[in-house]
Simulated assay, not measured.
Amino acid sequence: MRTKIATAVSALVTSPRLRALGRRRRALMRRLSGRRPVIHYFHQAGDPYSVLAVQAVPLLRARYGVDVEIHAVSAPDRAAAPEPDMLTAYGLRDAALSGRLAGFSLDADVSALAPDASAKALAKGDALRRKLGHYLGAVFYFEGEWYWGLDRLDFLEERLAPFRRADAPALSIAPRREVTLAPCKTPARPPVFEAFISFRSPYTWLAIERVTKLAAHYGADLKWRFVLPMVMRGLPVPLAKQLYIVRDCKREAERLGLPFGRVADPVGAGAERGLSVLHHAIPAGKGAGFAQSFLQGVFAEGIDAATDAGLIRLAARAGLDDAFVKKALADPSWREVAEKNRADMFAGGAWGVPSFRVEGGAMLWGQDRLWAIEEALRAACESP
């Protein structure tokens, strides 16, 4: 019953109809008050993603008939960003990739755009960010919805389309880049492609199909490196973060043409049971199929993986029978493998999933960076 209630709540939270109603209600309130549209941008000093995001502010003001208010905020607390030192190191490298796509630089002088960061200003900005329901820097808020950094600026611009100035260019400020599966010669040796995944990660669900297609197209040796969910490793996930993630995943799923929203959270027994089956499915050549079935089931179909009926149903879609599932559940050796994978992932500079690397190279975190993984796979194919 608890799972059914949670699934119904998640479906409501991610409901496109509810989202559309909220947008119309806020737009009506704005028009009735006679106010101009206002974007709130939250800037975190020293954050590389904020250095990039604030460079978009003048472009937003120039292209759209909107006001943009900039607020200084503090760094997120450890509950929202549990590995601050790793985030600092990874963020510099990852933001450089993101900036390259948009033509923005981490070396740009943004002092004229950055807001007052006095203690009083920070307290005010933090309070507003908390009230509106977020926890990070480099985020834009517009009439009830959040957009993080350059990665989600295209979604914000979709919302702003009615306010676009007549002379504004049609191209997005920060265009997306997606995998292309471009022609590539068969490699002399299959490049090793590692995918660090979790069965409680909705972003893993968004990535899983593209990951398998990338590996097949570029002749890669795909290694599934499963880990326990973050919260089961003692890393908390605050409510504001949970809400932002499921709503963000919903719009990403819509963009990718994937179902999402009827979530049966597999945290605990569901994830553990799923990983035990995955551990046995991988050497049987059914790892990708089971992972995709499991993730679709728990994030789009409300299937409870903590029950025998639910897990058997998810396994059957991947060609795994009841006997296979029972044998896997009786074997606890998956735990050692999951811990080794976690240690390797941390050693590579990532602490969350999905994360990827090719030929032992730089770790890339997130389904938004699969285009960069494709670059690495193509380079590996073209190397002598």
Rank of each mutant, 00 (worst) to 15 (best):
Y135L: 07
P202N: 15
R247G: 02
F155V: 07
A338H: 09
S33T: 10
A27N: 10
A80R: 03
S111H: 10
E375F: 00
G360A: 14
R262E: 13
A112D: 08
A117K: 10
G366W: 09
Q55A: 10
G310Y: 04
D116T: 01
S172K: 04
L377I: 04
I208G: 06
D107I: 11
G297S: 03
S98W: 09
A174G: 09
F140W: 05
V73D: 02
P229L: 08
R26W: 02
V51E: 15
T212D: 14
M363F: 14
H71M: 07
A112Y: 02
R255G: 11
R19P: 02
A380R: 05
F299Q: 11
S33A: 15
P191Q: 14
L136K: 06
A89Y: 11
Y41G: 07
G289A: 11
L258N: 05
W365N: 06
L18F: 04
P169I: 11
E301G: 00
V237Y: 02
P76D: 10
Q242N: 07
A108C: 09
R26V: 08
Q44A: 14
A8V: 11
A347V: 07
T180Q: 15
P58C: 06
A264C: 12
A121K: 00
H40V: 08
L256F: 04
G366D: 13
F163R: 05
H279P: 00
F140C: 07
P37S: 14
R100P: 00
H217G: 12
K4F: 12
K286I: 01
A95K: 04
E158D: 13
P283D: 08
E209H: 10
R165H: 13
S15V: 05
W334T: 01
A53G: 07
F163G: 03
A291Y: 01
D308Q: 01
P76T: 13
V227M: 13
K326C: 03
W334H: 05
R159P: 02
Y64R: 00
R176Q: 13
A62F: 03
G234K: 08
L239N: 04
V353C: 14
E69Q: 03
A161K: 05
L97T: 00
A102S: 06
G234D: 09
S98I: 14
R100L: 09
R313N: 06
K124R: 12
W351Q: 14
P162Q: 06
P115R: 14
K124W: 04
A343D: 10
G125H: 12
G219V: 03
A253P: 03
D94A: 05
R225Y: 02
E143G: 02
L235R: 15
A195S: 13
S10T: 13
A138N: 09
K124C: 09
R23K: 12
E157P: 01
Y141K: 00
S50N: 10
L92Y: 04
G287M: 06
L295M: 07
A168S: 07
I312R: 08
Y218S: 15
L278K: 01
D107C: 09
D331E: 04
E374T: 07
K213A: 15
M29K: 13
L295V: 00
A253D: 12
A81Y: 10
A328D: 00
G268I: 03
F260T: 05
Y41K: 06
A207W: 14
V9A: 13
A215D: 03
A75D: 11
L60E: 08
A72M: 02
A168V: 03
L21I: 11
P266S: 01
F163P: 08
H217K: 14
R78Y: 01
G46Y: 09
L243E: 04
